[in-house]
Design a protein around this nucleic acid. Structure first.
Lengths: 343, 343
DNA sequence: AATCACTGCCAAAGCGCTTTGGACAATCGT
DNA sequence: ACGATTGTCCAAAGCGCTTTGGCAGTGATT
């Protein structure tokens, strides 16, 4: 059942039916009622392609899942972020078009994504330092917003980012205040822009107190529980083990926790752990009142909401200067951090 | 730059250009070369909507993120599953259209999803027992495949499922063989069809050896680390604590592990833990050679691959009888399970 | 009585692509 | 040498919608 048929069955023109259905004023209330009733009865649904072709709006935004050809890690943050974005987009009737791109194919996928008409805008995730995709997206001339930022890139694009530097500066400060001097950093892959910023925050906090970082207790890798466990195990076996650890994700913190226990130590007493918490819905950091880990937190789901919101604004009015949003992580204190043990 | 312009600039008809680009034989090799070169030079990309409208194929499949209005849990399995599906779909040039639906709006979202033309088929995830969506999808008459199954529903639909019953039967058998008698079950929400099947496998294995389950050591909830911890803590404090635990996800097992350690017990010696492992890429169960947890495993990413594959087949030929795939989980033994402690 | 502004409707022109049904030459079989 | 094929190309008809530009009819205004 298409518009033509529906119009015919009502003895009206397509124009009138279309207008009636889309709430235009040029149609009498009586006919509108008649039309909507008939539409409902026949289960009429406009063909989104045809509509999109006619209006020029795709009512969808694109998202590219970055992934190398090798079975690599899916960003655990992805699901919550997408949920947030989808949630906001749904309120405006937008869908998400997902595409997967191996590293080499990134460019092509981005191009084909906006192979005209498929989407009205794009959200780019997990930017690397000096990420070439930004230039590409600008080049393609389509609204986009980046979840994260790219250092060393001009500021002429939309982004939404948490203040990673500040968060890790604060977390490190907290540990320093507690008297810790040997603080380990278990960071994400430093190719990722956010990991870079976090390290800077960490290093700055140290040097502000006249301390220097020890590379032996700084690690950087994909943020898995395993990584946390392995590195913590290694570091705790050092002649001068750290008394505190700063980790980049709850999963890593859990791994560190496991290692601490495996070494017969107690978290929060012998070794403190502070982590960043992305607020993943399926991996809560204890309860709201009683967190397990002392943590900087910024729920990634709300990042999804915000990015979507920004993109929609951008789609509505392309010509305004780019919007940029910086979020401050909150800081909660749990039993995982305590005063540095006295020797 | 559209087809018309491109054709004009080449002094050819749209027909010929279209045919040249799409590899039809009715065009000479010389013109084809000329056309492809020009297309490349002008950066021509066909409008996917127009093409879709003309061909009738959307080159996309739909996926609905189920989610209640309340900030509920995003399925942790989602990301990997989607990655798998996207991976397979990408090889055939298909995209994924993602939509989010609150429980009440499910029906509408499904309807509007295939609001004609948006997608060629759908993948449905996380079916509940007696899930009404299956009837809905059948009713809408669009190819679909279900990741999981629905009990008490006729078999006339495509599904791909792991043999949950068998997996938990085997896992329980393993623990029974080790001499365990009081085995706890930390299951997923029993509204989920798979949780139901797992419980059945567990119960059957027990009763086959003449044992009955104790409701005091059976729990069922959303599969978080917290849930694992809380329930394990509670159970280990019982007058007759379990000597083994069977959990429904790695996250839950990790929670149980934490509880075991918190109680001053040793996993694999005092309390055994066996879990199901969805093979999430960011949450590996140790390494392949050295798993941490004894586990039934079935990587959900490959589920995504398979579902996509099946759906594509289904889209290609709608009229064949529904395909159904049952996967057997593999079973790996790690240090988390050992002989039941002698009293 | 003629003009004007609505109101409520319609015919038809796109949107950009694919595909059907030829047209026109060049080549072939006999 | 003549019809039958084959190789290249094209004009035009959709796909199903929105939207422009009009056209009657109705009251209200000059």
């Amino acid at each position: 059942m298409n518009l033509k048929d529906l119009a015919a069955s009502l003895g009206l023109s397509q124009t009138t039916v279309s207008r009636a259905l889309n709430g235009y004023p040029e149609v009498s209330e009586a006919t509108r009622k008649r039309v909507t009733a008939a539409a409902l009865e026949h289960g009429y649904r406009p063909d989104s392609r045809a509509r999109s072709l006619a209006t020029g709006k795709a009512m969808a935004v694109g998202l590219v899942l970055p992934m190398t050809a090798k079975q690599e890690i899916v960003n655990p943050v992805f699901a919550d972020f997408v949920a947030g974005a989808a949630e906001t987009l749904a309120t405006r009737g937008y869908d998400i078009v997902l595409s997967l791109a191996s590293e080499e194919e990134q460019t092509n996928v981005y191009r084909s994504m906006l192979s005209k008409g498929r989407v009205d805008g794009m959200i780019m995730q997990a930017p690397l330092t000096g990420d070439p995709r930004i230039a590409l997206l600008k080049d393609l001339g389509m609204p986009f917003v980046v979840h994260g930022r790219v250092s060393d890139h001009d500021d002429e694009y939309c982004w939404m980012d948490m203040d990673n530097r500040h968060a890790f500066h604060e977390a490190t400060g907290h540990l320093l205040d507690l008297g810790h001097v040997r603080i380990a950093l278990l960071n994400g892959l430093e190719a990722m822009d956010f990991a870079h910023r976090r390290r800077d925050g960490f290093l700055d906090a140290l040097s502000e107190r006249g301390l220097t970082a020890d590379p032996a207790i700084m690690a950087s890798s994909t943020m898995t529980e395993q990584f946390g466990y392995n590195e913590a195990m290694r570091m705790l076996a050092l002649p001068e083990p750290p008394t505190a650890m700063l980790t980049s994700s709850l999963l890593v913190a859990m791994g560190a926790h496991r290692a601490i226990q495996a070494r017969g130590l107690r978290m929060g007493l012998d070794v403190s752990v502070v982590t960043h918490d992305d607020g993943l819905s399926y991996l809560p950091n204890g309860t709201e009142e009683a967190p397990i880990f002392t943590a900087t937190q910024s729920p990634v789901r709300s990042h999804g909401n915000i990015c979507a919101e920004m993109l929609l604004k951008r789609i509505d009015q392309d010509k305004t200067p780019p919007i940029q949003t910086k979020l401050k992580a909150s800081f909660v204190i749990g039993p995982s951090s305590g005063p540095a043990p006295t020797l």
